[in-house]
Write a protein that binds this DNA or RNA. Structure first.
Length: 411
DNA sequence: GGCGAAAATGCAGCCACATAGAATT
DNA sequence: TAAATTCTATGTGGCTGCATTTTCG
């Protein structure tokens, strides 16, 4: 309790930035993430008040404490009395909301210091960012929807195809009460979605989707033979032979059991992503960037499945979102029709989507590489705004040819 | 199939500077 | 022994150049 901010090292950290893998106080959160248009896209959420190292995914209204998925399970999964606690999902935000705005979303957080003015307005006044296109986009977006975006939670709750692309500061509903016990709760997967993916209608009645988000699937394709005893030289062969269909039961999906198997397989390999869940469309990035966002791994499964079927060996308490930043997160399989989706009458469309998905998957896999973990968010923040000449840092005041803040060149 | 050229890919190194941590006073 | 000061090593991202691998004729 009371861990200090990674940036200033002074204030108590309250929010967790997945992109930076950093715990920040509210002040530094605003400072760091108002630096430029890219940093403003960083998705943040409250810090787990129990372990103080992982992003909180739920708020236990009974205990009045924000918990990451692991702590949530530890606290609620084993106790029959505690498992009935009502919990709220804690969703991510991006941009640089003011304290009052944060208070409105996280009404349960009482100690957010009040700010006299909009943080964005305040910070932007100090910034030297010129009016580039991104900035204009921000401004226009802010003007267009304004504070209503923050306050109008009810409207956000109703998924809109444009929810992801149009909302710069998307503060999804923080009041999605989870009445289900842990064992069956899909802890932190709001039914938000992005353009390019199937709409909510597809998912709502799909038990498979409720329990398993396959975004991380492709990362494990190389190891399918180990997992399933299926010998495949590579994933191309897997696709060509319809192997993925047989692996995931597309052709003979029989319900929960196969669902569980798939989930276990995925979780077993990408278990490190467990604590890095977040709403798929929690920031203002375009749908495309979200779908290919390596730094925002998405994996959702039930806590019950995780603990009853999974071995967590090899996962240490030191694991953090940064460790899993690029677990090869690919949403490619979700683009278009998912391979395990039962056949429907729109076979031609499905086939096209599938082919597209396969092609995108192959392209993604081709370009995929594991990113390093950022150890010091403060250093990253400085490097992100440092001027360069041919990629090299320059002395302060020297002529530069690249300014990350302005995306312009001085010569 | 073997060969060479071209294209694609991977990766180390460079830069300035704030800062963590060790060493010294 | 603790505090203050000094010194050294480290890490950060974009770009370049070189080495290696792949593709093509």
């Amino acid at each position: 309790m009371g861990y200090i901010c990674d940036f200033c090292g002074d204030q108590r950290s309250m929010v967790y930035c997945r992109s930076d893998a950093a715990c920040l106080c509210l002040s530094c959160d605003r400072n760091v993430h108002s630096a430029n248009a890219l940093s403003r896209r960083h998705s943040r959420t409250l810090l787990c008040e129990r372990c103080n190292s992982q992003p909180a995914s739920v708020r236990c209204t009974e205990e009045k404490v924000s918990l990451c998925q692991n702590c949530d399970w530890m606290g609620h999964g084993n106790s029959t009395s505690a498992s009935s606690h009502k919990r709220q999902t804690i969703n991510c935000y991006s941009g640089c909301p003011s304290a009052s705005e944060l208070s409105s979303i996280w009404s349960f957080v009482l100690d957010i210091p009040s700010a006299g003015e909009s943080a964005c307005e305040q910070e932007m006044g100090l910034m030297s960012i010129s009016e580039n296109s991104a900035e204009k986009a921000w401004a226009s977006s802010e003007n267009a929807s304004g504070s209503a975006r923050v306050n109008d939670m009810a409207s956000i709750d109703k998924p809109s195809p444009w929810a992801c692309s149009s909302s710069v500061l998307e503060l999804n509903s923080a009041a999605q009460v989870l009445d289900q016990p842990v064992g069956s709760a899909n802890v932190a997967l709001p039914k938000s979605f992005c353009p390019g993916t199937k709409g909510p209608g597809l998912y709502e009645d799909d038990d498979l989707y409720q329990d398993l988000n396959m975004d991380e699937m492709d990362l494990n394709l190389e190891n399918y033979d180990e997992l399933f005893g299926v010998t495949l030289n590579n994933s191309e062969e897997l696709f060509e032979n319809g192997g993925i269909d047989s692996l995931f039961g597309t052709k003979n999906m029989s319900g929960a059991d196969s669902n569980c198997q798939g989930a276990v397989a995925v979780e077993g390999l990408s278990v490190g992503v467990v604590n890095a869940m977040q709403p798929a469309c929690s920031n203002g990035a375009s749908a495309d960037s979200i779908m290919s966002n390596k730094t925002e791994p998405i994996l959702c499964f039930t806590a019950k499945q995780a603990h009853s079927n999974l071995s967590f060996s090899g996962v240490t308490g030191e694991s953090s979102a940064g460790d899993h930043q690029d677990c090869g997160a690919s949403s490619m399989l979700l683009m278009g029709e998912p391979p395990w989706c039962p056949p429907c009458q729109e076979n031609s469309i499905q086939s096209t989507n599938r082919n597209d998905a396969v092609m995108r998957y192959m392209e993604k896999k081709k370009t995929r590489k594991f990113e390093k973990r950022v150890r010091y968010a403060s250093r990253k923040a400085r490097a992100d705004v440092r001027k360069r000449v041919k990629g090299r840092f320059i002395k302060a005041g020297d002529a530069y040819d690249y300014d990350p803040l302005n995306q312009t060149r001085s010569c």
